[in-house]
Write a protein that binds this DNA or RNA. Structure first.
Lengths: 341, 341
DNA sequence: GCTTTAAATGACATCGATTGCGTAAATAAA
DNA sequence: TTTATTTACGCAATCGATGTCATTTAAAGC
């Protein structure tokens, strides 16, 4: 079952012209007489001629298409970021194609290569939680495929990056908890090797330090799959709750972890209401929970927009860009009931 | 800024062979001597040669890539369906590219055409809420681009379709409400022209009829944007609540409407706890709401899998398929607190 | 030693579109 | 009328890979 479509050759044959003439007529070249142009244009319209973008990509070595790779659509941060990216891309005449890595390194490599070799003009990516080897991206970067990182950025590749101030987000959230009077604040973080995990962890630590609260390593848990596997979150929580000195508040280090931990904490608190919690989350439903959830919210849409703008800047730049910058957005702390004393 | 990559020509030049020989050596043709093969393979590996898929698409007129168009990623039904589609596609050696229509007809047309002309081998689509003209799809279907519809299907195009039993889902939900003792059951439905809206509405009506409850037209509201615009949901609800004879239960006809109506109803019920509600929803968070939400849940992942399987069947079929079928899945009613009497 | 035959490789067209260059015919200038 | 200049178009190469159809080479057969 194949999909057939009219070509320049069809027009040329029908009108007894050469392919070149038809091509030029369609592109309104000054070399072609008005009558010929009219003939060509009319017939092209009649048979609904559309230039074959595959052929154009092959010839021009660009596709006006931008590839986006995110871990998961179901994470609201990413779907919002994608919406921001699309809004800019469309306004500048680019199409986007989007894939999910499902937090899998292997899938990410396949998706990235598929896109690169399918001639995307550039790549926007937030790496999977499993990714701690960046050769697949370095290789493309070395070959000068324009790449912009957002959110889960890769430090060691020199290009534009767009992030949230993860340090500050975690710092502010932790400070909020401290000010509310919580003393034993636990942190369920994502995979250790991720740059944003480190930054958030730093923010958490620094807030404790600044308020003269000792850091207790047993209160820091990592979810190697970023919360994608429910059981790892359950384990983190149950091990926290089985400590002699239980935490009185929990800070979650990622969207997925936040939503995964809620049922466990809700169940626990239904029995003995004791633990406050908050986390990074861009869900639109956090107000509907009981208690309503205090969150660190990132301007995902704006981050997406900024990343796409930077990428198009690279793509359309005539000369190699040398002074890449990292754009940082502020997250906002939204206080609700889940962190009430 | 361009992305350069090794070609067959590079290998041929370096090894002093012709392009054809190199091509055949790479594809392990019997015509090529082992030494030559070894030489070519080694050098290809050394310079990290990868065949250019654009060139291949041009030549072979297929891309091993499947296009998916959904209204919105943030709707869990769709992100789950996409996951199902990906699982099948990857296992059969296809890649997928995904776009959102954002419930916009214009965007849908652009996305569909972009994909078709970029040589996707087939298309999986659930149409936008705005789409009531299907020419863009008919055109491609007539040109024999394999298309499979899922969820929001297009009746008038003859191909495989995969849906949920929307009639039964709404019928069962309404029956549940009736059995719980509710008498004035309102229905907030999506855009009227959508086939699934009609089916769900029919199910709602039939359940009332079968239980000898008169249908009150003022209890049926339509959201022309499918709940994408918060205000339309608010208006539907406030007009329901301002009726002399207020509804005692509300059935929502779509994921987006369900989540959008929750804050309004929650606020209302906080004042005077009176209205029960449930709706179609594939959200994973419905247990966290207070009251926990009774839902009609669709097997989105399985629907996605089935749709992808059908599509690949069309793509790989040697002869045109004439007897297209519509596959129907059962949804499940999950009863929680929001429909307690 | 000459012919047959198989093995190994190259030349070239193809997919669809663009583009530099060449050229015939028409027009203008000398 | 002759030469110069437009005008309007066609030829052919190109992009990367495949595949058909030669062609070369060498070994085998008589």
């Amino acid at each position: 079952m194949k999909f057939e479509s009219a070509t320049i050759k069809d027009i040329a044959l029908k009108l007894n012209l050469s392919k070149s003439t038809v091509s030029r007529a369609l592109r309104d070249s000054y070399e072609i007489s008005n009558e010929t142009k009219k003939l060509v244009l009319e017939y092209a319209k009649k048979i609904n001629y559309r230039p074959n973008p595959i052929a154009l990509s092959l010839k021009e070595r660009r596709s006006h298409t931008i590839g986006i790779v995110v871990p998961e659509f179901s994470n609201n941060f990413f779907s919002q970021a994608i919406n921001g990216m699309e809004s800019i891309a469309y306004s500048k005449g680019y199409n986007v194609i989007i894939t999910q890595s499902h937090e899998s390194y292997d899938r990410e490599v396949i998706n990235v290569e598929h896109m690169a070799y399918r001639s995307v003009d550039g790549l926007l990516i937030s790496v999977s939680v499993e990714t701690d080897n960046f050769d697949h991206l370095k290789k493309l970067h070395d070959r000068r495929l324009p790449i912009v990182f957002f959110d889960r950025i890769v430090e060691e590749i020199d290009t534009y990056k767009v992030v949230c101030d993860n340090f500050k987000g975690a710092y502010d959230a932790t400070s909020h908890l401290i000010k509310k009077g919580f003393k034993n604040i636990a942190h369920i973080a994502s995979a250790e090797h991720l740059f944003i995990t480190q930054k958030r962890l730093e923010g958490y630590r620094k807030a404790l330090e600044d308020h003269n609260i000792p850091i207790q390593p047993e209160l820091i848990k990592h979810c190697v799959h970023g919360g994608k596997i429910s059981s790892e979150v359950e384990e983190a929580i149950s091990s926290l709750l089985s400590l002699k000195k239980k935490p009185d508040a929990i800070l979650s280090g990622g969207d997925r972890i936040t939503t995964e931990m809620l049922p466990f904490l809700k169940k626990f608190n239904a029995l003995k209401n004791k633990i406050a919690y908050m986390g990074f989350s861009n869900s639109d439903l956090t107000d509907l929970f009981t208690p309503s959830l205090s969150v660190i919210r990132q301007p995902a849409f704006e981050i997406g927009q900024a990343a796409m703008e930077q990428l198009i800047k690279i793509i359309e730049s005539k000369r190699p860009i040398l002074d890449f910058t990292t754009q940082t957005f502020e997250s906002s702390i939204i206080i609700k009931e889940s962190t009430k004393k």
